[in-house]
Nucleic acid binder design. Structure first.
Length: 653
DNA sequence: CGGCCGTACTG
DNA sequence: CAGTACG
DNA sequence: GCCG
């Protein structure tokens, strides 16, 4: 569309930003302020035309005519041409200005895929014939061959041997994501069933929230007028990125035939810094682009969540280009989780998310430094790992006895850092010691945690999660058929196994009071009598507090002899179901990111809804409750936050 | 340098 | 209240 | 640990 534009070829038009209405939301506009010159610089070729258009949508300006004053930042070169062709055709006797970055066609789409400006110096973005290739290639040449063998044997304990053979990328059977409850749509397709339709809103930019009409999937019926809200662009952007993920970079070598292969991945490109010692690119796309929740974190087709370790160590395919780095940093992260402060651990987890989304091997500190959430210190560690396959600092922690004991004790339900530290200091060197230590008064929960230590530590196969959910569902419906049960947690995110079972329980039209009394006074006793529920850990035990209980933790087992499993019930009125789904689907980093974003926008997000005008005092201390903005619809909450919709399976940070 | 989510339950 | 827990 |  826009391209035709040579019509008004005034100077001004030279670099006019296309009038595309379809700009992607701010946060994703990674090419903002960048000026692309394509080579050849026309959109005759369908593939290139698509690349140009998409680049523009991501914020790039397509410079139509070569002009030294146009501030061209990047030249995206057709794969059939060489570096030497450029000055010839452009009649540049002095060659290409040094500040202009020259990359091939693949660069832009890679950037979009990873939602960031990648290092243009990487060898696979080099145009044939590029001078200094040696230097630019730094990470391919020798380094690449040096690449860490993927024998990642570093695990500290035998525990996490859940190594899973990398399977073909078969999509999960979405229809059973929701447990036995056939009534709900499948989650990943989006909640067809939005709870609490429009009851709650008001005004203003209330989007035309799919009231009556079901399909939010279809199209976002956003109020076009809403100044701050994204409408179609948002969704389109997501789809675009999602599409990019699955469509291999097109190989449209075909001549400029007009049979467009199909819309091509966008081309975007550029990295602002040539010899980037710095990562300016990192931060200036949008005020909110640094939130994890703004970026897609698609889980591998069958991802497995962390195993024995507390926080981060997700099993990643050994084939991942940065497997070694990720593995070692995960271990280091877990170490900080149990030993030190949670903040360092949090920082590692954010960095790990970035690394997992990095499609290419990282080999140098400078390269790593450009990535989000990776600073100088982590960058140095990464380089150390890349070059030595080991991380000195970490190896000592593996053998530290106190550390290992802490890890052991922290694995007990209801034992945190405070208790675990005490136990170690008391001289306990095993769980048996703990049980016999005279100075230690175990709580009931801790006793259960110790007795079933291995059970709770074990992963629950996806199908068992489904079965356990089905049992609860059936029992509840025997009491009142109108109840609905949704399995949340990592199950809803598509994990092949889970650490526990998370169930959201609701009944359309019913009060919280009714839901609570039915569950606590009828369902729980029934399941206990059947020996399905084996222990009550928290929630509704104390009759005093039980009147406002909304969350219930316990242990259950599929059969009397099967391992005990942790199970959590969340009781939710339908008008809060959207917020509850977000909360109980997670993951935790994703939730925290969403909540932080909300608070930065003057709102507050919790498991009951999204609130506006949440007055906050110093820091972000809550002062006022705020008005409910949206609670029944997951999509509604995303929209009000300006966050592109994310399927549950894409919420793995 | 300070902030790093917002809540529910227990004793 | 601190501690632990939930995502 | 990282970020603003």
């Amino acid at each position: 569309m826009a391209s035709k534009g040579t019509c008004a070829k005034t100077k001004a038009s030279k670099r006019r930003r296309s009038s595309l209405p379809n700009l992607v939301p701010d946060a994703q506009r990674i090419f903002a302020n960048l000026n692309f010159y394509f080579f050849p610089n026309n959109d005759i070729h369908a593939g290139r035309k698509a690349r140009i258009r998409v680049s523009e949508r991501y914020g790039a300006t397509w410079v139509r005519d070569w002009d030294a004053t146009a501030g061209i930042t990047h030249i995206i070169v057709d794969h059939r041409l060489t570096y030497q062709d450029i000055p010839v055709y452009l009649k540049l006797p002095e060659g290409i200005p040094p500040e202009v970055i020259v990359v091939n066609e693949e660069y832009p789409s890679d950037c979009i895929r990873s939602q960031m400006i990648l290092d243009a110096a990487q060898s696979h973005y080099q145009v044939p014939g590029t001078p200094n290739a040696a230097k630019a290639t730094s990470n391919t040449g020798p380094v690449a061959s040096t690449r860490i063998p993927s024998q990642v044997d570093v695990e500290p304990k035998t525990k996490q041997n859940n190594q899973v053979a990398r399977r073909s990328r078969s999509p999960l059977p979405e229809h059973d994501l929701k447990g036995s409850t056939a009534t709900h749509g499948d989650p990943s397709e989006s909640d067809r069933v939005e709870y609490g339709k429009s009851s709650s809103h008001d005004t203003g930019c209330e989007t035309g929230q799919a009231d009556g009409e079901t399909d939010e999937t279809k199209l976002p019926q956003t109020a076009p007028a809403a100044p701050d809200k994204y409408g179609y662009e948002l969704i389109e952007a997501i789809q675009e990125v999602a599409a990019l993920r699955d469509i291999p970079l097109e190989l449209d070598d075909v001549e400029e035939s007009d049979s467009p292969p199909q819309d091509e991945p966008p081309s975007d490109s550029d990295s602002e810094d040539h010899r980037p010692a710095h990562k300016k690119s990192k931060s200036n796309h949008s005020k909110f682009s640094n939130f994890q929740c703004m970026h897609s974190h698609p889980a591998p087709a069958n991802y497995s969540t962390a195993t024995a370790t507390p926080s981060s160590s997700t099993i990643i395919p050994p084939s991942h280009p940065n497997a070694q780095i990720i593995t070692l940093l995960s271990l280091q992260c877990d170490y900080y989780t149990r030993i030190q402060d949670p903040w360092r651990s949090l920082a590692y987890r954010k960095a790990l998310t970035t690394l997992k989304n990095q499609p290419h091997p990282i080999t140098t500190a400078a390269q790593a430094r450009q990535l989000r959430h990776i600073g100088d210190r982590l960058a140095r560690k990464i380089e150390e790992i890349a070059t030595t396959s080991r991380l000195c600092r970490f190896e000592s922690t593996l053998t530290d006895p106190r550390d290992r004991l802490l890890q052991l004790f922290l694995g007990v339900y209801d034992v945190g850092l405070a208790q675990a530290s005490k136990w170690v200091d008391f001289g306990c060197r095993s769980l048996a010691d703990v049980q016999t230590c005279p100075q230690i008064a175990l709580t009931d929960n801790q006793r259960v945690g110790i007795a079933h230590y291995d059970d709770f530590q074990a992963r629950i196969p996806r199908d068992e999660v489904r079965q356990l959910g089905a049992i609860v569902t059936n029992a509840l419906r025997a009491i009142d058929p109108a109840f609905e049960v949704t399995i949340g947690g990592s199950y809803r995110r598509g994990a092949r196994d889970s650490g526990d079972v998370d169930l959201l329980i609701t009944k359309p039209g019913a009060s919280t009071r009714y839901i609570r009394s039915t569950v606590l006074e009828q369902l729980v006793p029934e399941l206990t009598a059947r020996a399905f529920l084996r222990a009550r850990l928290a929630g509704g035990k104390d009759s005093v507090h039980a009147v406002e209980t909304t969350k219930c933790h316990g242990a259950c087992s599929l059969t009397p002899t099967a391992p005990w499993r942790r199970i959590d019930l969340l009781l939710v009125p339908e008008e809060e179901m959207g917020a509850a789904l977000i909360y109980f689907t997670g993951n935790d980093i994703f939730n925290r990111s969403l909540r932080l974003l909300a608070s930065r926008k003057g709102m507050r997000l919790n498991q009951r809804g999204l609130f506006e005008d949440a007055m906050r005092g110093r820091g972000r201390m809550k002062v006022t409750e705020g008005r409910l903005v949206e609670g029944g619809s997951e999509r509604g909450i995303f929209e009000r936050l300006g966050v592109p919709w994310r399927e549950p399976t894409e919420r793995v940070c």
